[in-house]
Amino acid sequence: MAKTYDYLLKLLLIGDSGVGKTCLLFRFSEDAFNTTFISTIGIDFKIRTIELDGKKIKLQIWDTAGQERFRTITTAYYRGAMGIMLVYDITNEKSFDNIRNWIRNIEEHASSDVERMVLGNKCDINDKRQVSKERGEKLAIDYGIKFLETSAKSSINVEEAFYTLARDIMSRLNRKMNDSAPSGGGGPVKITESRSKKSFFRCALL
């Protein structure tokens, strides 16, 4: 069957338990149904389709729910990941401090060119805030990573976060294509319909 998308991006959500990673995957955060059966066996990953700059993009998103200790998350888990959302809870200082540990874990185990982004989640609960927005921004600057405060509950910046990460990954893929192009043709590489998009991604990954 012909491919019906332009890009396939594999993303991970990483961060301490309780920071609301799973909620970032809901469109309606309060609306999760979780039947007995589904909540017992748990969710492995989700596929979502977005449109960005006229391209149809499939996001395959894994959530680390239930295995949030750094030591348990190693190379196998990161294999194939093109983007990682590092999530902390602005009402939980410890989850913010741990972002540095998570970043170290990524540096040890993930591909060196994986795109990263830091999210300070639960920004709707301002009266319980323990981590200022400035501290989040500073941490992100220290590591050269993009940063957003999000609220899965109030749907603030959640879509923006995924779009930003997706756009950054696409730019990197396009840069890579250009770098490996045989002649010095400067402009962005046009991905034509006839090209197999799947193999394009495999090349980009390896």
Binding site: L25, D31, A32, I41, G42, I43, F45, K46, I47, R48
Partner: peptide, 24 residues
Amino acid sequence: YTFENVGFTNDVGRIKYLICADCE
């Protein structure tokens, strides 16, 4: 990847069940 939006459960034996990606 033909799916627009879908979720996959963890394995139950050799089976993965499909769920709604939005409300689960």
